[in-house]
Computed example of a mutant assay.
Amino acid sequence: MAITQIRYDTRGRTYYQRKRAAGKSHKEALRCLKRRLADVVYRTMLQDRVSSLSPTT
C-alpha cells in the first residue's frame, strides 16, 4: 500500500517527499508512511465499529 502511494500522485507521496526533504532516508520515510497508513486504517476500523453499534432508525 505504501509503495503504491509513493508511485502515484497521492497525499501519501506528498507525505513521503516531505519526510525525505526533512533528511530521512528512503527506508525511514517509508516506515513513517507505513505507520501513517496503519493509523488511518485503525481509525477507520474504530469508526466502523462505532457506527455498527449505533441503533439504526
Rank of each mutant, 00 (worst) to 15 (best):
M1T: 02
A2I: 13
A2T: 04
I3T: 02
I3K: 02
I3R: 09
I3Y: 14
T4H: 08
T4M: 09
T4W: 13
I6S: 06
I6G: 04
I6Y: 14
R7A: 02
R7H: 01
R7T: 01
Y8M: 14
Y8E: 01
Y8C: 01
D9P: 13
D9V: 00
D9W: 11
T10P: 13
T10E: 14
T10N: 08
T10A: 04
R11P: 09
R11F: 15
R11S: 00
G12F: 09
G12Q: 07
G12P: 13
R13E: 10
R13Y: 12
T14Q: 14
T14S: 10
Y15E: 07
Y15G: 12
Y15A: 07
Y16F: 15
Q17C: 15
Q17Y: 02
Q17H: 08
Q17K: 11
R18D: 01
R18S: 07
K19P: 12
K19W: 10
K19E: 13
K19H: 10
R20S: 14
A22R: 15
A22N: 10
A22L: 15
A22I: 14
G23W: 15
G23R: 06
G23N: 09
K24E: 04
K24W: 07
K24F: 03
S25I: 08
H26C: 06
E28I: 11
E28L: 08
E28P: 14
A29G: 09
A29H: 06
L30W: 03
R31K: 12
C32D: 06
C32Y: 08
K34T: 01
K34A: 00
K34V: 00
R35P: 08
R36M: 09
R36F: 12
L37M: 09
L37F: 01
D39P: 12
D39Q: 06
V40P: 09
V40A: 10
V40E: 11
Y42E: 02
Y42M: 11
Y42K: 12
R43T: 04
T44V: 03
M45G: 02
M45V: 05
M45Y: 04
L46S: 08
L46D: 08
L46M: 05
L46I: 05
Q47G: 07
Q47W: 13
Q47M: 09
D48R: 11
R49E: 00
R49Q: 03
R49Y: 01
V50M: 10
V50W: 07
S51H: 02
S52L: 12
L53Y: 00
S54R: 13
S54G: 03
P55K: 05
P55L: 14
P55M: 08
P55A: 00
T56N: 05
T57H: 12
T57C: 13
